[in-house]
Design a protein around this nucleic acid. Structure first.
Lengths: 205, 205
DNA sequence: TCACGACTGACACTGAGTATCAGGTTAGAA
DNA sequence: TTCTAACCTGATACTCAGTGTCAGTCGTGA
């Protein structure tokens, strides 16, 4: 996977970043994202405001940097898929990889999703990241199943729809406090495209 | 449609707002969104910085307030649709209403979309608005064709996908400088869901 | 004509994010 | 071990978005 030597400096930086984020996250959950300032955070973490800002470009990134690898996770998973599957199946399985990557600690993810949901600035920034991932994913999809007419509109729409599903499903899952089965939720969400009549005929059994 | 009496105060406010936005828009296109400050804008418009800020809560809104009615346009159009159509047809037609509302001056819309595209802050804020529209649209969709299992996941996915299509299509359209036919682009985009094999088999003729 | 509400400009303030600089620390080569 | 170059840190100063307040002005309706 990641075949970088990772010098000691890099390791240290990574660890400090994680610790700063941990301290900050507690504050955010306690007081609310907008109410906490960089001055508060740096004081709580025992570093200067300058240093804190050097580890995270923006306040949003203090929370959202954990989502950064998701784009790569999806593209990698898409490559691993057997190419003889249809687009939707491949995207669905790639999303499964994404949620597996994200769900390491259920309670932690539920908490972070809750914080994001009730903070417009975090939602916006997360959607921005999502849009950044799209071109790469579209390219990967087109590489194995090229478009007939050379247009990438269809691929773009499918990828955009899949990424929307990711957040809708995670929102639903976190609303159930992490109880619901994410695989089933993904299937239910993708059913929005596969039900031929395009009616609300979910769960017919 | 809008049956409000609209007092003179309201008319005046509306007109001033439009003029301020016009002046600001020119500056943004000339210098770039991030390079222009409220001080620049207020000076160019001949009002104080305070006044300018009173008309637009944020710098993003100076550009994006024209999109505010789109949510209502879509929900209204959805109501007007005959309920015996399937979800995708209704959404597609509602989107047609939305683009008709937006395309009053082709060149102006192309310019504004270009500005948005090359300014991450504007993209983010626009997506935020888009997310705000969704619950209302979903409710309207469910009112006529309720979900079988009481879950709104499928409706949410479909609406989210449709709204993604809106921006993908507008992006494609503005890339062609407003030459392409928006109706055909919408059809092509919705084909991403209707092609049964879910392959890139666009435009088979 | 008067009174009330809204609009305006001026000012002060908080907080995010950028840039710079001097001093201290560490990694890695000599 | 020693030296050096790269890096990290805290301090400071700065720009700008956005909020809040206040006194003065203007339009409207009674």
């Amino acid at each position: 996977m990641s075949a970088a030597p990772l010098g000691t400096r890099e390791i240290s930086r990574h660890a400090v970043r994680a610790e700063l984020a941990r301290v900050a996250f507690n504050r955010f959950c306690l007081t609310g994202f907008n109410q906490v300032t960089f001055a508060d955070l740096s004081e709580a973490a025992g570093v200067s405001r300058s240093t804190f800002l050097r580890y995270f470009g923006t306040k949003e990134d203090v929370v959202l940097f954990v989502f950064d690898p998701v784009g790569d996770v999806i593209t990698d998973a898409l490559d691993a898929e057997r190419a003889n599957q249809d687009d939707w199946s491949r995207l669905r399985n790639a999303l499964e990889s994404a949620v597996r990557f994200l769900v390491r600690d259920v309670q932690e993810l539920v908490t972070i999703l809750g914080l994001i949901e009730q903070t417009p600035a975090l939602c916006a920034r997360l959607r921005e990241k999502q849009t950044e991932w799209r071109p790469e994913i579209v390219a990967r999809l087109l590489k194995t199943t090229p478009s007939a007419d050379g247009s990438s509109v269809i691929a773009n729409v499918r990828v955009a729809a899949a990424l929307e599903i990711l957040w809708i499903v995670l929102g639903q899952w976190s609303a159930s406090d992490g109880q619901e089965d994410l695989g089933k939720l993904l299937d239910a969400a993708f059913a929005a495209f596969s039900t031929p009549a395009c009616r609300q005929t979910d769960a017919p059994s």
